[in-house]
Write a protein that binds this DNA or RNA. Structure first.
Lengths: 334, 334
DNA sequence: CCGGCTTTTGAAAACGTGTGCAGCCTATGA
DNA sequence: TCATAGGCTGCACACGTTTTCAAAAGCCGG
């Protein structure tokens, strides 16, 4: 509306708008006193430079686009929090867009980011990533993926070392003395599920335990399916004494089902999650899990993007390590 | 970078860029065949209009700014999810900024939004709202607050009816037969805490129960302080048989403390929360609580903002009702 | 064939900022 | 006194759109 422009200031200060522009940028090309006078006037007039006008000429918007499946996912929210923090510290504003894992919406979002001329894009935990990769790459803008499910592409990414982490989780159960250890996975075929499953198998193998196919069931990463999966395990003639879950949400469902069947954690069954959501420390009993450095992953991803924006071509993939957090949902078998 | 502009298309189509602009807007001012030819060329050249150039001339950015204390708060994340949904549906992109409840950062954020020339601003659960209200109002832009703690200001807002909801929660406990009902509040002095406390007192009063000051303690809306507050209640010579908590996070802490003392919920103590976070249905036992229509609140807030952007001056405040969700953390006293 | 109308097109200005270039002013040295 | 260098400032253009206004082109009736 009535926003004051560089020209308004020029008129008041009786100089050209170029001089005002330079003064406000502390350019050495303008005399000290003039510059100070101009800055004072700008201050008094409540001047705020227009980022849009500036973007038009500099061809940089100092904005980045963040696309998430849904910000209501606590894991993602933490990551975004980390992203926003370092973006903000570097003068970047972030556009947030939910895709709801809907391909149409994802494409709309990417187009929208394109039209807004964002300087870069961050995508967290995209399951359908490959789908709109073409659209992403057609705008020549740096992209960083976080925990994406379709790696091996041309883009940069920040990933958690799923294999090592889940091996650690399974090792923990083995060391407690468990021999029948189940795995409740995510939907079959997802990259991170495959990796966590691989870690589980590696741990079994190294401990000389034979892999039992019937001890592997799949949920969908949410509590409801976690319950159903756990139910199936409990119906086995010889149920497991310990269960490693794809994530905490799944563990939440498993925990509830175990309790519904009148069994106890960890006395009857040990339970391990993955993610270390906030909630994991407030379940009953508190959940042993793998901590993902969520906020840190967001930070690192944004820092990687900043490097790319500066034109430094850095490493392709940043690997981060999970950490086994031992709480009270695991104990030796009876 | 090498992004194609309206002029590039004009050159190829051998028309003026004005004509291209009109053709792309389906203006009736351009001949059908010409328009179609131009649109086809634009398509082939992979044209994406520049929102920043457009914004400069139209003086509308089709962006809104959302400031939250932290997106890592599950309550807020749900609200933002609702906001983003309707914003996106109406062609608006959302800038997300965390303030971390830090006044300096809040001011920086508002300035940033101002420079980006957002069309409107949404603020969720601002505790220090009054602090930067001046900065907000100085840019002439519609503002909608969600559950803000300093109402009575000149802006528009979406609020939950705290008094009615907490009266319902307390009534529920009274009807179960409880007579010693405690209240664990948020930090003293916050608006929503004051209101929930008021509802609690009203319910007691209407039931003819005398208010007992020692049954009111304060936390800070997070589990740790909820534990401490609950601890204080349990040290009373005659502890409460039921506790109404300011929010679910506080209830989470209370629940843990009750269990640490070897007591059981709801057999020994009934517990009621507020918010109905996702987690509330997965505690042990599942938590009776007041459901806030979080996503819906975000949607309504954005819709209100859209009305304001259209120039319709609508109602000042939208009140929303909470809903009592009875689960298993409440039962008659022994 | 011409005037007048409608349809279609183009020229140009505007939005607010950044910046290369030219030119002014002042001081300095010869 | 004059030439020159260096410090400072203004002009003008650019960025990619939208939109007003004028003008060209096509059409019709007389």
């Amino acid at each position: 509306m009535s926003s004051v422009s560089i020209k308004d200031i020029a008129r008041v200060a009786k100089v050209s708008h170029s001089t005002v522009s330079r003064a406000l940028h502390n350019s050495p090309l303008v005399r000290r006193e003039t510059a100070e006078r101009i800055r004072r006037i700008a201050e008094e007039m409540g001047y705020r430079p227009s980022a849009v006008a500036r973007s038009l000429v500099t061809r940089k918007t100092k904005t980045i686009g963040v696309v998430v499946t849904t910000i209501a996912d606590p894991f993602i929210a933490e990551v975004v929090s980390g992203i926003e923090e370092v973006a903000n510290d570097h003068g970047y504003s972030v556009f947030l867009a939910n895709s709801n894992a809907d391909p149409d919406r994802e494409i709309k979002v990417v187009h929208s980011f394109h039209e807004r001329r964002v300087d870069g894009i961050l995508v967290t935990a995209s399951r359908v990533g490959a789908l709109y990769m073409d659209h992403l790459s057609e705008m020549k803008v740096p992209i960083v993926l976080i925990n994406n499910q379709h790696p091996g592409e041309f883009v940069h990414s920040v990933m958690i070392d799923n294999v090592t982490a889940s091996r650690a989780a399974t090792d923990h159960l083995i060391q407690l003395g468990h021999r029948r250890i189940a795995y409740i996975g995510d939907q079959f075929g997802y990259q991170s599920d495959t990796e966590r499953f691989a870690g589980y198998r590696q741990a079994l193998e190294r401990a000389g335990l034979t892999f039992q196919p019937e001890l592997v069931v799949h949920g969908d990463g949410k509590p409801e399916e976690g319950m159903r999966a756990m139910e199936r395990l409990l119906m086995l003639s010889s149920p497991p004494t310990a269960v490693f879950c794809y994530n905490d949400m799944t563990a939440l469902g498993a925990l509830r089902m175990i309790r519904m069947r009148g069994l106890r954690v960890p006395e009857d069954i040990s339970l391990v999650g993955f993610d270390d959501l906030f909630i994991a420390s407030y379940t009953e009993p508190p959940l042993t899990t793998i901590r993902q450095p969520k906020r840190q992953m967001g930070r690192r991803a944004m820092e990687l993007l900043l490097q790319l924006l500066r034109g430094e071509n850095s490493q392709q993939t940043i690997w981060m390590q999970g950490e086994l957090i031992i709480r009270h949902s695991t104990a030796p078998p009876r």
